[in-house]
Design a protein around this nucleic acid. Sequence first.
DNA 1: CACGACTTACTGACAGGTATGTAAGTTAAA
DNA 2: TTTAACTTACATACCTGTCAGTAAGTCGTG
Lengths: 209, 209
Amino acid sequence: MATKKREPRSRSGTPARRQEIVRAATEIFGSKGYKAGPLTEIAEQVGMTHAGILHHFGSKHQLLLEVLSYRDESDVAELDGKHIPDGTDLFRHLVRTAFANAQRAGIVQAYAVLSAESVTDNHPARSYFEGRYHQLRGEVAHAFEVMCAERGVAAPATIAHASASILAVMDGLQVQWLLDPGDVQLGEASAFAIEAIVAAVLDPRESPL
Amino acid sequence: MATKKREPRSRSGTPARRQEIVRAATEIFGSKGYKAGPLTEIAEQVGMTHAGILHHFGSKHQLLLEVLSYRDESDVAELDGKHIPDGTDLFRHLVRTAFANAQRAGIVQAYAVLSAESVTDNHPARSYFEGRYHQLRGEVAHAFEVMCAERGVAAPATIAHASASILAVMDGLQVQWLLDPGDVQLGEASAFAIEAIVAAVLDPRESPL
DNA sequence: CACGACTTACTGACAGGTATGTAAGTTAAA
DNA sequence: TTTAACTTACATACCTGTCAGTAAGTCGTG
């Protein structure tokens, strides 16, 4: 049983190169979509041929998956303490994120385009986004529960709707903002809507309709 | 100047045929996106070749525009009185629409996919969606103003944010619902969020954050 | 109201562009 | 000296739009 697992050791500059490619791909997928964003264009941006990219990632499909997971990693890395905030802090974090997003249209566009494109038939990113939203809804719901517990109120049945809604406004505002940045204020509008929804959960009132 | 303007008279069945094509195109663009949805597939669905479709619409681009304007027409036609509801009625109408949308995933998907795809570079539907959101925000804002006037309160500065937010939640929830219909209740969640936002405009409270 | 002239609604074939993935060869780092 | 990191060349597959042709409908006119 002399099976030597020879794992592919890469050259020194390789991880950096792959990262360059992933970043370029994010940009191209963001500006043209996955299906319409050609490998040649990504390749050109990092100064190689499209075959070079396929050497690194094997397929376009795989590259897309790495683009998505890369963004997750860098998101997590960005959090100082490395832990997801909870309770009130989570909502404050979401508002800050919305303001920060107004400064980086590139990634925002990539996510907006890809998440909507992912609902199409057999899209390679479909299960990624399905899982991502599922998890995020869970995290927001948990933050709601924590807040309710802190205030000694019973967690209402509206939490599930509110959690989905908070993610939904953030995404929906991004699309409107990308289409017309002069007419939509991403950070301010997100903050307003998040506060409105949180208030409606913690301290429900009669419907104004 | 004996220029006889011979206007193109079409055969009797033609308008119906064009409508069939538009409907098929809506379905294909919805399930695969504009760029990735081939004319051949649309053609196949109505029993023609792709050249036949180009005969009717001239180009794929043009077909897309007709798909979009067709949906607008049928939306307007749907309203009994032919007038856009206003004030409180508009919000009630939006909630009803959200519930109705849960019954027609096809069109919902087409709009979700196309609106996000439209933010990509030089997309043929970009100005359509830009204009559409602009108009809808205006209508919602007007409804807010009417409601404020009715209650004798001054229209607050939050109206612009709230208007964009209401459209945003509706769209964002659609995407989540399309990805995971078992976990997101489109109608109920939309109703909850719309009520929360309307309440926050009409009767603002201190931020819970 | 019948008939010829013209037009519409297509089809089939193809041109031209573009895309992904593969295979074989080259260079240089480890 | 082995093998990672490429390139060039190519196979293969699409997809849109054009063109020429055909069958059937519609209109003007006698």
